[in-house]
Amino acid sequence: MARITASVYTSHVPAIGAALDLGKSGEPYWQKVFSGYEFSKQWLRDNTPDVIFLVYNDHANAFSLEMIPTFAIGCAAEFAIADEGWGPRPVPAVHGHPELAAHIAQSVIQDDFDLTIVNKMPVDHGLTVPLSLMCGQPASDKFEWPCPVIPFAVNVVQYPVPSGRRCYNLGRAIRKAVASFDAPLKVQVWGTGGMSHQLQGPRAGLINREFDQAFLDQLIADPEALSRKPHIDYVREAGSEGIELVMWLIARGAMSDGFPRVAHRFYHVPASNTAVGHLILENAK
């Protein structure tokens, strides 16, 4: 049977992708951001899973306003890199895991989660920046990500967006689905986006360290209580785009009950407009 071994949480700022792609990662400004991921890259090399289930939000790339799914699961064998308006990032295409994705879809839809099944979806920085941060830039002679990735897109752009509670419970349903997959796969669930940031209007640039640190503490210690935080608290305290943090609750809900091991924790302000938060939680072996 498959099992979830660990969960990874990280911001997915587009400027991080640009810094990597343009070779700016050595600059002092960016060094401070990337230093928080040195541990993580080694950790991922030591703990490479068979599949990553990567929760992110699309930023007006795969989905236009014609059709906005609340939750979309990528069931394809391959996902192209989106041209977000400045050309596609020069990173490898993402290989999916259609069997596990279809199995998870089957299981969580039976558990009353109304997923949109997606067989074609270009993936944007929301997905590729976390991969870059955790895997580094793939070598040109082995231009691929270390394992298959199931993209899972959450609508946090057009209101109404799903509640933290709904996301947390979805994570639990995903845990159950993975546990019933009949192959000995090690699966990691990644939750991306956040932390506090606001990109728009006169309040742009908002950062709330206190909120972010408390969120990280509670995510580790009492996610059940954290899942009851209402939307308005995210928006007011963590900025209009801080709402992306509900996606972390999906990854946290997918972890086993009881305390996880905190393998790594990092927080830094700023990367571009955003407070960068990063956690690695491991399930007991």
């Binding site: 394809a76 994705a101 279809a102 879809a105 089957q106 099944i117």
Partner: peptide, 10 residues
Amino acid sequence: FDGDMARKGY
């Protein structure tokens, strides 16, 4: 017409 068929017949 499940995921297997949907992929096969895409």
